[in-house]
Amino acid sequence: MSSPTQISLDTIHLGDCLEWLRTVPDNSVDCIVTSPPYNIGKEYEVRRALKIYLEEQTAVLAECARVLKSSGSLFWQVGSYSANGSLIPLDVRFFPILEDLGLVPRNRMIWVRQHGLHARNKFSARYETILWFTKSDDYIFNLDAIRVPQKYQNKKSWRGENKGELTCNPLGKNPGDVWIFQNVKHNHEEQTIHPAAFPEDMIARIVLATTNAGGVVLDPYMGTGTVAVTSRDLDRRYIGAEIDPSYHAVALRRIAGTPDENGYFPNLKTLRDYCETHSEDPAKYRFDAQTAKVASGRAKSRRFSELHHLQELEDRLRLEEGAFGDRLRSISEGLPDIERYRAKELDEVPTLFETEAV
């Protein structure tokens, strides 16, 4: 094994992450955030027996723990492993591995997905998880940098000594541990050739909360460069590795932010950013995942905030719970035409998560 050496910041290594991690110096990284292969047979991974997969991941995590500063944080975003009809949440298996490495659990965030794996013999999967562990109890957490609006932003006390004063933090509230950032799929301006990329807003929340300006952010499974681009835009440094040459090339193109020799960008967001900076017509260029005849400017984007999607989720759940309660009451009251009721119910339930054009 090679000894850790000084590495260049703001670079993405092309190759195996475990070999590369062994070259990273001890206690040199402020934050590690990634989504490792789920071992479910995606195009960018080789499916292995779960035991072997977890052994390999343990080796990677051991190196991550070594390079993390004492004030540092690690975010490990995972889904589920399915085999022979069973479903194993991977965070359940990763949790004790991280504890055994001496890391301290801080949060288990639920990332609600607008769409997910459909199922017939069990409930459909509609969320993934993000495990947050720290190296010690002396860690960075910049809450003010990530606050979100209060439900009643200007609510004031109406009695007592504090009458007329604000009863909440004017900067906003803690966003909590249920996140509903939009999934980067079709018609999302950040979409690249990678089938499972992070949304930049979600990485921004993690980076702003757990690092300071100039801090070093590491992603051992860099993919098409979301962590690198987001860290750079937030005045942080980045390092990482990616084993797939095609993803690595896209990451470098996103960082460069310029069109290739054929006038193509890695995604629509990079195209729009370039055109806004250079006062160019977006229709002059194309991007890798383009399906429309021409690229549009950001004025035509229909991007929505996390709060928008959270409100839609709450409305949807309230609707589903109410409809189910009505159905139970109709059964208990002995109403004969349940099938007609179901048909009427489905006709009245709007489609909540429609595809959003960009």
Rank of each mutant, 00 (worst) to 15 (best):
Y152M: 15
E354F: 09
R342F: 11
T129I: 07
T129L: 08
K42S: 15
R316A: 10
Y247E: 01
E306A: 04
G160S: 07
D177I: 14
G257C: 05
D30Y: 06
S80P: 04
W132L: 12
F133D: 03
W179Y: 01
G15S: 09
A204M: 05
I7K: 09
K122A: 12
R205W: 06
R93D: 11
L21T: 02
R302F: 13
Y53K: 11
T5H: 13
M202V: 03
P195M: 05
E43M: 15
Y81A: 10
C64W: 06
S3Y: 13
G164Q: 07
I40V: 15
E321V: 10
P175F: 01
A145F: 02
E165V: 11
T5Y: 12
T351R: 14
L271C: 02
R342I: 13
A256Y: 02
F198H: 00
Q150D: 01
A299P: 09
I180A: 14
K293Y: 04
D281L: 06
R340A: 14
I12K: 00
L14S: 09
T11R: 06
S330Y: 12
Y285T: 04
N262P: 07
T192P: 04
D201W: 00
E321K: 09
T210L: 02
P336F: 11
K135V: 09
S86W: 14
P170S: 10
T230E: 00
T230V: 02
R303C: 05
I32V: 13
A249R: 06
Y285W: 03
Y285E: 07
R22Q: 11
C275Q: 05
L74W: 01
I140L: 08
V29R: 00
T258Q: 12
D326E: 15
I140R: 06
F324V: 14
S231T: 03
L50R: 12
R329V: 13
P149T: 03
Y221C: 02
P175W: 06
R66T: 04
R113Q: 11
V184R: 01
W132G: 01
H278S: 03
G79C: 08
V349I: 15
L328Q: 10
S157G: 07
D30T: 04
L117Y: 13
I140E: 06
V60E: 03
L54D: 08
S332I: 11
N27P: 04
L143Y: 06
S82F: 15
Y238D: 04
I193N: 06
T167V: 10
R93M: 15
T134C: 06
T5E: 13
E312Y: 06
A197E: 07
Y152N: 08
L317K: 08
T34R: 06
I180N: 03
Q311I: 13
T134G: 02
S136V: 07
G257D: 07
E189A: 12
D288I: 09
A213Y: 10
G164E: 04
E56K: 09
N267R: 02
V227W: 00
V112T: 08
